[in-house]
């Protein structure tokens, strides 16, 4: 178990190194000079050169990369060119929106997907199954932003239950902030629930055909025990993989939904920062997004080991 954990941890570190190198290289070769953007098109060549030197942009590739990683590791934040504040502070404030949004979305996704998937599997090829499959097909075909807009029209404009967008901030209004996340999280969650429900269904169907399910029934166990104790745990293993991928993806920011609901999240931050050639922000945020995906997958690997006793042998 410990060896499994350590192996996965080592993989995590190597992956993060490769990701940081890739991010840095891509941004290094990307056209667009931050100094030019800061000083404007009428800046003199001398002032441009001075600013490049100040920003360290005239130094060789590996020196710049070493500076960046060195600062990150020591916890020293660079300054955002556009926002004129430390990148870490900026990212932390945006993460306070995106993090809860992603988690809440996944809660919605799981709460809808698992019961629907199990229900459909238990009624395979009957009208109940068909209803779930139709409903989830609809979910798969629905664009997020459109669902978001519909939700705003109905719950905000028509019923006036929620604000139509914006985010008051956790310190200022915790309850209001949570409410501001509910509709966007629901829009994100429902669409992910469609995929998860289908996956849960097919995974349950596979497991229900297994010999050990026949054994469980031959023992005279209650159907509830057969489904929730013997089948579901086995069926959840593939579901867990997709769940992890979805969570990682959501942590990387839901740019479109954040725009529909005017949420100051990571997605909008990186979108703005790219437009502004705010390199310190872009590279830190992109690295963070990649790290989130890698880290969630690491957590999924750990969860596998917790669910499946066979893992420690491999």
């Amino acid at each position: 178990m410990l060896r499994y954990f350590l192996t996965k941890l080592a993989t995590l570190v190597v992956l993060l190194f490769l990701v940081s190198l890739t991010v840095f290289t891509v941004l290094f070769v990307l056209p667009g000079d931050p100094a030019q953007i800061i000083l404007g098109i009428h800046a003199t060549p001398e002032s441009l050169a001075r600013l490049r030197a100040d920003l360290g942009l005239d130094r060789p590739f590996f020196a710049q990369y070493a500076d960046w990683v060195g600062n990150l590791v020591q916890g020293r934040s660079a300054l955002s060119i556009h926002y004129k504040m430390p990148v870490f502070e900026l990212v932390a404030s945006r993460l306070a929106v995106t993090g809860p949004l992603a988690l809440l979305a996944m809660v919605f996704a799981v709460v809808f997907a698992l019961p629907l998937g199990i229900y459909a599997a238990r009624h395979q090829n009957r009208p109940q199954d068909l209803a779930v499959m139709t409903f989830t097909q609809l979910g798969l075909a629905t664009p997020e932003f459109w669902l978001g807009i519909l939700l705003v029209l109905f719950f905000s404009v028509e019923l006036n239950w929620f604000a139509a967008g914006g985010f008051p901030g956790w310190q200022a209004d915790a309850w209001g902030s949570l409410k501001a996340l509910l509709l966007p999280a629901f829009a994100l969650g429902i669409i992910r629930a469609a995929i998860l429900a289908r996956l849960t269904r097919s995974s349950m169907l596979d497991v229900l055909r297994e010999d050990y399910i026949r054994t469980a029934r031959a023992k005279g166990l209650r159907e509830r025990t057969v489904i929730y104790v013997h089948a579901l745990r086995n069926a959840l293993i593939p579901v867990l993989t997709i769940l992890g991928l979805q969570l990682g993806q959501l942590l990387a920011g839901a740019i479109i939904i954040e725009n529909v609901f005017f949420l100051p999240g990571l997605g909008r931050l990186v979108f703005t920062a790219i437009g502004m050639r705010d390199l310190p922000v872009v590279r830190d945020v992109v690295l963070l997004m990649a790290a989130a995906v890698v880290f969630v997958n690491f957590l999924v690997d750990i969860a596998y080991a917790a669910v499946d006793p066979r893992i420690e042998l491999h």
């Binding site: 297994e210 010999d211 499946d308 006793p309 066979r310």
Partner: peptide, 12 residues
């Protein structure tokens, strides 16, 4: 049953 390899639940 015939298949002892698959007739027991692997997770319990």
């Amino acid at each position: 049953f015939q298949e002892p390899m698959t007739s027991l639940n692997p997770l319990l």
